[in-house]
Amino acid sequence: MSATRGWTEAEIARRVLADLWEGAYVNLGIGMPLLLNELLTPEMGIILHSENGILGMGPAPPPDRRDDDIVDAGKAHVTLIPGASVFHSADSFAMLRGGHLDVALLGAYQVSMRGDLANWKRPGQRIAGVGGAADISVGARRVWVMMRHLTRDGEPRLVRECTFPLTARGVVRRVYTDMAVVDVTPEGLRLAELAPGYTVADVVAATDAPLAVPESVGG
């Protein structure tokens, strides 16, 4: 894959950001979603939730301002923005499970055409941690996934049926990859946007499930 084709991870993050809005309460999963924390500015009015008990999480502090009691879900030091609040884990997961969170941005191993999400464990892996992923994905109003379209071995991650252990069934609404933006609809996968340099045929070939292509995207 040449560098001039498709979106870089930072560009995927910027593409996601374009779909967020002022006042949105958003949870960022570990991995690619954390790139958004570096792009957000206070003027955007997007409020980040961290599962360990923070609403209003800000970017990493300089090393001399680190506080061990202000960390994110990946245990990295972060900051609190003005207007932030802190709370215990039952309240934190009430926000998630109770449908109060507008958007959860998650990484994934696989997403199925029905919106099944696999992002906590590899097949055959004996010891894995699920953390908050299962609660977040069943509870957030919108679950959006950020991932590479293909695995390192060139296997599609958008599939008919997940072969990895599931985190939750039928929850993913939109997927952002280096090749495209794909919506998960009741009828299956639908192409929403192509990344520069890719054709509809490229994306269809890299997707292991039927992909509807609206005329507006080049179908």
Binding site: A90, F93, L96, G132, A133, A134, D135, V138, G139
Partner: peptide, 24 residues
């Protein structure tokens, strides 16, 4: 799952018989 763990502990302390959750 983390939210289930939190709620099971809360239920234990609150004298409830269990938790009904969509998680998992």
């Amino acid at each position: 799952p983390q939210g289930t763990l939190a709620e099971c502990i809360r239920a234990g302390g609150a004298g409830l018989g269990g938790v009904l959750t969509p998680t998992g």
